[in-house]
């Protein structure tokens, strides 16, 4: 029973060693990885890129999600957008710390979740956050989808960036971490571009679409602008479940459905 022996030795290391002990960390690495919700998909709806555009962008997406939830379980995370940028700019003028910016920015993702929740209410889709995540499995089972505000709950405990005060872990990170902790089947970022480009396609007409890329390649490229929060790449390096994410264009009908079916319709970013 070597398996039992491993478990005993992990337990004894845990009770006797420092939590930074190399042998303990190695032993914890060998523990099995149980995926909590392996059939669920996490889909992030961008704030600035989608929700701020109003019904022209949001209604068709809601319709597509309602169709898709019959076939797939979907956890829908929301981004923040233009009001968060206003708050960050204002708070930065007062030189307030990153923790305060995190807190006030989180409320914007919450408003977007609330609005999306009202649009999907007639289809039985609830909004969850905090302890509400405890009922997530039931919602997914019963109606196929649930909505959550994408900002992680780091509040005043947010890491500070190397420069400035903008919170480094925002809604892309929050949604990815949900996919990772639940062992979700896929992580799809719905934005207003076809995927990741070599530069910001909104300002650089020569920007080229990158169809597939690894995290290491992307970090090496050190692009000045990215379609996804930079720290997500660092988190993905240590992923146990969410090792691939796809960035797709939510303004093009049908792509969400195809991405949920596993098709490659945008940019695939993979951990290795």
């Amino acid at each position: 029973m070597e398996r039992q022996g491993d478990a005993d030795s992990l337990q004894s290391l845990l009770l006797s060693r420092s939590l930074t002990d190399a042998e303990l960390l190695e032993a914890s690495d060998a523990a099995p990885d149980y995926a909590i919700l392996p059939d669920a998909n996490v889909l992030k709806i961008g704030g600035q890129s989608i929700i701020d555009r109003g019904r022209a962008a949001v209604y068709p997406i809601v319709e597509e999600l309602v169709q898709a939830k019959g076939e797939h379980q979907i956890m829908i995370g929301t981004g923040a957008g233009t009001r968060a940028r206003h708050l960050y700019a204002l708070a930065a003028e007062f030189a307030l710390p990153t923790g305060v910016l995190t807190d006030i920015g989180a409320a914007v993702a919450g408003q977007n979740a609330e609005m999306l929740g009202h649009l999907m209410a007639r289809h039985g889709v609830p909004v969850v956050s905090g302890t509400g995540f405890g009922a997530l499995a039931l919602y997914l089972d019963e109606c196929g989808a649930a909505i959550f505000p994408g900002m992680p709950p780091y509040d005043m405990w947010q890491h500070v960036p190397t420069e400035g005060v903008i919170p480094p872990y925002r809604t892309d990170a929050g949604c990815w971490l949900v996919a990772e902790v639940f062992g979700a089947r896929s992580m799809i970022f719905v934005k207003d571009e076809d995927g990741l480009y070599t530069a910001n396609p909104k300002t650089e007409p020569n920007a080229k679409l990158i169809e597939s890329v690894t995290v290491d390649e992307l970090i090496d490229m050190d692009l000045p602008d990215l379609v996804i929060e930079r720290p997500v790449l660092e988190l993905m390096r240590h992923a146990r479940h969410a090792k691939t994410v796809q960035v797709i264009n939510g303004l093009k009908p049908g792509l969400i459905t195809r991405a949920l079916a596993g098709e490659h319709v945008g940019t695939m970013i993979s951990a290795a």
Partner: peptide, 19 residues
């Protein structure tokens, strides 16, 4: 649909634009 601010329409990823 934008709220006017110095960070308006930024991805908040480009360091040169945020600084």
């Amino acid at each position: 649909k934008d709220v006017q601010s110095t960070l308006m329409r930024q991805t908040l990823v480009d360091r040169e634009l945020i600084r």
